[in-house]
Structure formats: structure tokens, C-alpha cells
């Protein structure tokens, strides 16, 4: 009996110590690992769009409810990480999860694909990381070429890796689903054009304040005004028409001063992006 107690106590003690050590290690490394993951994503963005110095991040919900970070780059280019679990109906990877970053231009054409994480067989499926294979996706879109593996679909545009058809199929499926997600998330361009943004804004304002006449030139310049109205929901300040007119006047003054400097489209985009 005494022996039994000793066994239980020793094993419990060792397990408790191990749990403590793991908790300590987790506490020490958690932040750092999260940071490394972010860095990795940033590096992948750099690889796909080398001249995109400061991508604007935003979160888009996928059909499955997953929050996907989309990195918007100038020229209406965008890239985002999509995994084999992000959409249903993707053919399964050989083992574990594959996450890839897909970069697209304003028309939804693929500019580049980078594998972020994978645990396919080394030497076989792991070759999906090789440039010679993953480079095949460049220039394809939902309408250009066919996102399917040749071995499965003769008209497909992707050559499977020999001995790793399953991995090849999985990546192709992810890329296709990613493009579909992207097309569904905001038209062809993930970053809505200035016009679309204004339209959406006007519609929202009309719903709130009644029709305020046709879109005027002043409205087009009213990005900072939008920033005011777009306060987070709970905290939204209700302003009556008079207050709004006053604010508008103030802002128009500011804009007039600023517009003496040249305002390029890219710049306008950035300023609205920052005001979100």
C-alpha cells in the first residue's frame, strides 16, 4: 500500500513539474512566436509584392466565419493567407494543414503564391514550396487558365509534382478557393475603388440622414468627414443637420488648404485607409 502511494505521488509530482515547465516555456515564448508568425506573413507579402512597403491590414470574414487578414497594397493589389480549412470542399492535404499566401492584382489575377506552413512529406509533398512548382500559378485567375491539376483534369493548367499528386491538388484547391473568397469579398478588387467607396458611403448617409441631393464635388473630397461618421457603432455620436453642416464647413476649409498640394489617387486611398 505504501508503495502504491509512493508511485502515485512520484508520477503526479513529475507530471506537475512537467506542466509547470511547459507553462513557463509557453509564457516565455508565446508572444515571440506570435510575432514571428506576423513577421513571416510580412516577409511573404514582401516576396509577392516587393515594392509594397506598408501594406494596410484589414480583416475580412470568410464564408466559414474565419477572420482573414487581407494586406492591401498600392495599385489595388492585395494578398492574404488562405488555408486548407478556410473553405469547404478543398481536397485534403496529405498531412496536416497547408497555409498559403495568395497575392492578386485588381483584376483577380494571381501575382504570386507563397507557402506559409505545410507538413507534407519531406522530399515529396514538401516540394510544393519550390519556386519551380508554386510559380505555375502566376498569371492565372478564375477566368484565365484553369485552376486544376492536369493529372485530374486534362484541361487544367497545373502540373502535379510526381509522387505528390495529393499535395499538388490540395494547394491548387486552396488557391482556387482563395480566389473565390476574394471575388466574393468585395468585387474583383479586395480594396474597393474610390468610386465604390463613395457610393457605399452615400447610401449609408442617405439611410441615416435622408437624401441629401446628388453627389457633389464636395462629397467626393469628404474623406475625413467619413472618418467622423464611421465611429465604432456603440460610440457613434448623433449629430443633427446643423452640427453636421458646421463640421462640413470646417473640414472643407482644411481640405481646400491641403488640396493645394497635389493629391494622387494612391494618397487618397492611404488617407482613407488610415482613417478606418
Amino acid at each position: 500500500m505504501n508503495n502504491m502511494v509512493k508511485m502515485v505521488v512520484t508520477l503526479s509530482l513529475i507530471s506537475a513539474l512537467a506542466a509547470g515547465a511547459l507553462a513557463f516555456a509557453d509564457k516565455m515564448t508565446r508572444k515571440k512566436i506570435a510575432m514571428q508568425a506576423k513577421l513571416k506573413a510580412a516577409r511573404a507579402v514582401k516576396k509577392i509584392f516587393p515594392d509594397c512597403a506598408a501594406p494596410v491590414e484589414r480583416i475580412v470574414k470568410s464564408k466559414k466565419g474565419e477572420a482573414i487578414t487581407v494586406y492591401d497594397c498600392p495599385g489595388q493589389k492585395a494578398c492574404f493567407i488562405f488555408s486548407s480549412n478556410s473553405a469547404s470542399g478543398i481536397s485534403r492535404p496529405y498531412s496536416g494543414l497547408i497555409r498559403v499566401m495568395v497575392g492578386v492584382d485588381s483584376r483577380g489575377t494571381i501575382e504570386g503564391v507563397e507557402v506559409i506552413t505545410q507538413s507534407e512529406t519531406p522530399g515529396l509533398g514538401a516540394n510544393i514550396e519550390e519556386k519551380s512548382w508554386i510559380g505555375q500559378f502566376k498569371g492565372l485567375s478564375l477566368t484565365k487558365g484553369k485552376l486544376a491539376v492536369k493529372k485530374v483534369d486534362r484541361t487544367g493548367s497545373i502540373d502535379a509534382i510526381s509522387g505528390a499528386t495529393i499535395s499538388s491538388k490540395a494547394v491548387t484547391g486552396i488557391v482556387k478557393a482563395a480566389l473565390e473568397f476574394y471575388a466574393a469579398s468585395g468585387g474583383k478588387s479586395a480594396a474597393p475603388s474610390e468610386k465604390a467607396r463613395n457610393q457605399r458611403f452615400n447610401r449609408a448617409r442617405q439611410r441615416k440622414h435622408g437624401v441629401m441631393g446628388p453627389r457633389s464635388r464636395a462629397n467626393r473630397l469628404s474623406a475625413p468627414l467619413r472618418a467622423i461618421q464611421r465611429k465604432p457603432r456603440g460610440k457613434r455620436v448623433r449629430r443633427n443637420k446643423k452640427q453636421l453642416e458646421g463640421l462640413k464647413l470646417q473640414l472643407r476649409e482644411k481640405i481646400r488648404m491641403r488640396s493645394s498640394r497635389a493629391m494622387t489617387p494612391a494618397r487618397t486611398m492611404q488617407s482613407t485607409g488610415g482613417a478606418k
Binding site: 513529475i14 507530471s15 512537467a18 515547465a21 511547459l22 516565455m28 515564448t29 512566436i33 514571428q36 513577421l39
Partner: peptide
């Protein structure tokens, strides 16, 4: 238990400091 703990810790520290 000892081995699994050790491996997990090596994994974590490697991910954090030698990505």
C-alpha cells in the same frame, strides 16, 4: 513525461528564437 516535456519545450523555444 520527461521526454515529451523536453521535446515540446525545444519546439517552443526554437519557434520563438530560431524560426
Amino acid at each position: 513525461v520527461v521526454i515529451a516535456t523536453l521535446v515540446t519545450m525545444v519546439d517552443m523555444f526554437m519557434a520563438a528564437y530560431a524560426p
